[in-house]
Write a protein that binds this DNA or RNA. Structure first.
Lengths: 325, 325
DNA sequence: CTGAAAGCGCTAACAG
DNA sequence: CTGTTAGCGCTTTCAG
């Protein structure tokens, strides 16, 4: 059994209260006393017991990041990026970070964590469960209409707008979109943004110029082939994400079309694959790290009792022009 | 303040012990009593307090995954894969998972977690600190000579061997390697394996046929260009990982060399980029998920007091032949 | 500046 | 099968 505050108290000849103060509020203890305590602690290899502290304080100093998605691997590049950001922000505080998935977060006990960041398509059931246990909640890459939870999202409309405006600037008017079935929230936003921005620009969306595909590589490739082999194919394709854009590139290669001369291709997310491809893929960068950082900061602020001034934080994307457009 | 076991005890008219039993060992309580307790708990919106439980049991039922790396982003595809595996295995147990980095794991208090999985190049200092606090330790993607810590690693030698044998089967004899400066443990293993397997096969390593590069895309591209523009370049290049292989592919494209006819290229890791490239990249799959799963299982077993039969678990890789060789 | 003591919510040994 | 009770290790009020 490890030594406790009592052992240190005994060895150093001071009370347990003083030992406690030495560790949690050093300034309130005279230096001489403090030194005695620290020396005893060193000898005994004493380290404060985090559980007992939590018990007394009734807070865990832990938050959880719960990933709510069903498709693909859990920590894909997008969520890993968010997680990186959350880690960075959490680690700078006194909090520690638990990571799990919606599916596995079953053993919900009170006081496991002080708050949660829900990433992606969190079910209402999960949200209500968290509220029932008095946890503070922040959503990331999702928002729930009508409930007004604090959330951090990317400006999906702006992402699509940046893409379309770039294609227009390159002289394209027959622009198509390959939408995909991945995160419901994101997909819907990007899809709707495409329709509204095209309308705003006065560009018609021709029949067959919007298709929906599963987000994996082979499905996107097939769908892109179908789009490009129409009688009147688009001259530029906006893919709903880089994975789909990659499939579109493969389709172009298979059909012997030159990118960007015969067909311009543009992704969203700006993932690592963009620079691996040839030609390198133009994409709209979504600042996933920043989304993570901001959501963690928001939750931490909430836990300090501060209400954030803006409950809905929108992270602005940035167009990265490369060689595919 | 949330309700406690006492409130439930009072409302249901049984002792606190019975309430406790109802939640942690239901079978030891008569059904009728149990129902009364559950009903009271429901009414009061009671949920057991995890901290108090930990306090009593003197264990947190939490483990930590500490990522020890300096280059690149924290949760890159490789470590995200390991983390996925750890999450899966952890979530199937009663444990929960903390994720942090070596750099940030400073506020080391006793009883924050019951054990740790150290991923990558853990410093001896960190390991000793963990031991001092009586934590159980498992290393993943690393091992420490002479200390005999439980560890899970990939069979790096076999990965290289599979690659070389494949290239030999394709008729290559002038095989080069692009080694890289990423994880010291892995790099060294792959590099040494290359030399020993080549020797074993009786193939000479020609001057300039082994080069070391930074692992980023542009450095690998430059280095690969240098290797391919020698007087007598290799006919096949084994890259130390897929990122470097990607750079090698770019070098081939830049030099107008056809892959695999003019130059065969082979990666290690089998990351997502392999199928994005054209031609698709042959690579040796490292089962990172499995590494995560096994390391978590090992740690969990250790925490149950079981000593694992094998302290050093080696995960066998698998060659995935695609179009680049 | 330091000490005594109460108590955070739960579990488990023991008694009935 | 159920109740009583003694802590787990720490923080914090209140006194000194």
């Amino acid at each position: 059994m490890a030594h406790t505050i009592k052992d240190v108290s005994r060895l150093s000849g001071v009370s347990t209260a003083t030992v406690s103060r030495t560790f949690s509020n050093p300034d309130s203890v005279k230096k001489a006393t403090r030194d005695k305590v620290m020396e005893a602690a060193r000898i005994l290899n004493y380290e404060p017991n985090a559980i007992a502290r939590s018990m007394k304080l009734q807070q865990t100093e832990k938050i959880a990041f719960l990933i709510c998605k069903e498709y693909g691997s859990i920590l894909d590049e997008f969520y890993a990026g968010i997680c990186d950001g959350i880690m960075a922000a959490t680690n700078r505080s006194d909090y520690q970070l638990l990571v799990s998935t919606e599916r596995d977060w079953t053993s919900m006990k009170r006081n496991q964590v002080d708050g949660v960041i829900l990433g992606g398509h969190a079910s209402l059931k999960l949200i209500q469960e968290c509220r029932r246990l008095d946890m503070r909640i922040v959503l990331v890459n999702n928002e729930v209409g009508g409930f007004d939870f604090p959330c951090v999202v990317a400006d999906e409309e702006m992402a699509v707008r940046l893409g379309i405006e770039h294609l227009i600037a390159r002289g394209h008017t027959r622009i198509g979109m390959l939408a995909g079935r991945f995160s419901p929230y994101v997909c819907e936003r990007r899809y709707n943004a495409f329709k509204s921005v095209m309308a705003e620009k006065g560009l018609p969306i021709l029949p067959g110029h919007v298709m929906i595909t599963d987000p994996d590589l082979s499905a996107s490739t097939e769908t892109a082939v179908a789009m490009m082999t129409q009688a009147e194919p688009p001259t530029a394709i906006l893919a709903a994400n880089d994975e789909i854009a990659t499939g579109t590139m493969k389709a172009a290669i298979r059909l012997g079309k030159r990118v960007p001369d015969d067909i311009a291709i543009l992704g969203i997310d700006d993932s690592r694959v963009c620079t691996a491809l040839e030609p390198e893929l133009t994409s709209v960068h979504i600042f996933r790290d920043q989304m993570g950082v901001e959501s963690a900061k928001m939750l931490l602020a909430l836990l300090q009792g501060k209400e954030p001034e803006e409950k809905r934080m929108v992270i602005r994307p940035e167009l990265i022009v490369r060689k595919s457009t």
